[in-house]
Design a protein around this nucleic acid. Structure first.
Lengths: 154, 154
DNA sequence: CTACAAGCTCAACTTAACTTGAGGTCAAGC
DNA sequence: GCTTGACCTCAAGTTAAGTTGAGCTTGTAG
């Protein structure tokens, strides 16, 4: 194996762990790029592996391809991204992650408190206040805990 | 407004903040139930609000409707769920949330370290070791930081 | 030169989670 | 008793993120 500089789509697939079809798909969406050989086959530079890795990682934390694409679009076109380039990304995403983590914690801690009470059904619950337009429906059931039902069959 | 005991689909939609079509959809998936009036219209008991609230909350943290449905299926059929019933759910989900939070933290802390280095492209990176089958591709580029490319055009 | 694995393109299918629309019924006001 | 808005069913459309398959071309090993 000569000192390879470029990778075929199959090689990228193998090394990155994503399917060839997914790579095609990412390319169509502009998340990665390639150039073509005279025979129209894709060839990738090494940084595609980095990009794909990032795509996967970001997806695992629930970032959509659209967002990932937007972020990756900030990387330089003509050269291999530098450490600083990548760090811009990671910093941006770390903020997002911090936010997500905070949300999850809030949810986790809120669940046990909230689920058993009546607050979920109304727009007062901290868990429910995320911009649901909602209601102002007038008076209605406010604390809806059903009367302690006499459970007939367990 | 008489002491309402049952809700129409429109009322549930308004109070829960989800669309009527979504309620129909949830019902088709078995996540909520209703009975029908003589005129074939849906009527909901109060606990549907609780259920819908839970569905939304769970979705926000990335639990699929299928999973939510499975969890909700553990609630009693014939009676209004008790606090204990709900607590079983919340406990189960709290475990899931704890896991998710841990994952996110790992990712967050790993991002800055990993993104700038070469490890992502290989199966050694902690971020990439999540059961990607992958590679053993033989020798290849192991630390792929491209040579400091002479950047031609900004 | 000839296989045959890898690639290529393009279209269609898949799953999740809904929304939108068509065509028809129910309920409440006047 | 008619009009209007809320409902009903069922089918098809939508977005995300890919996968699968058909039909055709490349490239490499023998």
């Amino acid at each position: 194996m000569a000192p390879v500089t470029e990778l075929t789509v199959g090689q990228v697939a193998m090394r990155s762990g994503v399917a060839v079809s997914a790579l095609h798909f990412y390319e169509a969406r502009g998340l990665i790029r390639s150039h073509r050989t005279s025979g129209n086959q894709r060839r990738y530079g090494r940084d595609v592996l980095r990009r794909v890795a990032i795509i996967k990682v970001a997806q695992e934390v629930g970032i959509s391809l659209a967002e990932i694409g937007a972020a990756l679009a900030s990387l330089p076109e003509g050269r291999t991204p530098t450490r600083d380039d990548w760090n811009l990304l990671s910093t941006a995403w770390r903020d997002g992650l911090d936010h997500k983590i905070a949300q999850l914690k809030k949810l986790r801690d809120g669940l046990t408190d909230c689920i058993g009470c009546g607050c979920m059904s109304i727009d007062k619950c901290p868990l429910r206040n995320k911009g649901d337009r909602l209601s102002r429906e007038g008076t209605g059931a406010r604390r809806l805990i059903a009367p302690p039902s006499p459970r007939s069959g367990g």
